[in-house]
């Protein structure tokens, strides 16, 4: 077989593989959306869940998911940014750095169940935070740190050294070069990393069951004082997220419309991740423009 034929054949195969993967993935998404979208209504999105009657919504769970996501990102993004910078810009290539990298990879391959149980032992029981948003956010941070650190490190590594040299040539210190030149240049890929990890956080259930809890007490949406326990902003209240809610109604739900609620909630989850993706991309582009072409 000559090289040209092989090239054609391989291209054909690659097309087929890609098409197959797209079909599988689109079918999966379509399946969830087709089952779930008819259940979505304004009432469904805003009303609280009902334990044993039909007609409950997912309002509180939806809010909890977003709040928890934001908290977890607020905690984990600075830490992983710092760690990523150190690993890529400062750390010398030696055994210790290799060991640290291995450690981070182990953390990332940690089953989310184990993270959840650790969070339960450490934050809920040891630190007496109870089943609360804060415990959940910390557990999600543990879960999120390695992924985010890795993607940030990779984003920084992909910035050509010429950029750094330009910074040094201008008399900037290494830290200034990193924060003023390298990080802004790497921002789009950092954002992609954040989006990917945000998606995982949003859909995570196993790590939250034992930390943020499985109940969503009624919230008083007129009270935005974070120190009131019924306030939506209170970090010490238990908070069932959307993913946990789906898990719970599928396993123990006794409401007559459990199937419909779970299908609707899954569709909402996907749509939320979708919206989040678009938003982050748009934001990333604007930030990139703002930071680099000023």
């Amino acid at each position: 077989m000559n090289a040209k034929r092989a090239d054609k054949l391989a291209t054909g195969i690659l097309y087929a593989v890609a098409a197959l993967v797209v079909i599988i993935l689109v079918a999966l998404l379509g399946y969830i959306l087709v089952q779930g979208v008819p259940e979505i209504s304004w009432h469904f999105l805003t009303s609280p869940a009902l334990a044993f009657e039909a007609g409950g919504g997912i309002g509180i769970q939806l809010f909890n998911s977003f709040y928890l996501l934001i908290l977890a990102l607020v905690i984990s993004l600075p830490i992983s940014l710092g760690a990523g910078i150190y690993l890529n810009e400062y750390a010398s290539k030696n055994t210790i750095t290799g060991l640290i990298r291995t450690t981070i990879e182990i953390l990332s391959s940690l089953p989310s169940v184990v993270v959840g149980l650790f969070g339960y032992l450490f934050f809920v029981v040891q630190f007496k935070l109870g089943f609360s948003i804060l415990s959940g956010a910390f557990a999600l941070t543990v879960f999120n740190l390695p992924i985010l650190t890795r993607s940030i490190e990779e984003a920084l590594a992909n910035i050509p050294d010429s950029q750094r040299e330009a910074g040094y040539a201008l008399g900037l210190s290494r830290w200034e070069t990193v924060t003023k030149i390298v990080v802004p240049a790497a921002l789009p890929s950092i954002i992609t990393g954040v989006v990917l990890s945000a998606g995982r956080i949003f859909g995570e259930a196993a790590a939250l069951i034992y930390t943020a809890g499985q109940s969503a007490p009624a919230l008083d949406f007129s009270n935005w004082n974070p120190f009131d326990i019924s306030s939506p902003l209170s970090p010490l209240r238990p908070a069932e997220t959307l993913a946990v809610h789906i898990w719970k109604i599928n396993s123990e739900g006794i409401m007559p419309d459990a199937k419909a609620v779970s299908a609707g909630a899954s569709a909402v989850l996907i749509i939320a991740v979708l919206l989040f993706n678009f938003l982050a991309r748009w934001l990333g582009k604007r930030l990139y423009k703002h930071l680099t072409a000023e």
């Binding site: 890609a18 689109v26 969830i32 998606g199 995982r200 859909g203 899954s266 989040f276």
Partner: peptide, 15 residues
């Protein structure tokens, strides 16, 4: 492909 794959990462394992 990219948007679809990134979307799928966010589907909870329960689903």
């Amino acid at each position: 492909l990219r948007p679809v794959t990134e979307l799928l990462v966010g589907i909870p394992s329960v689903v």
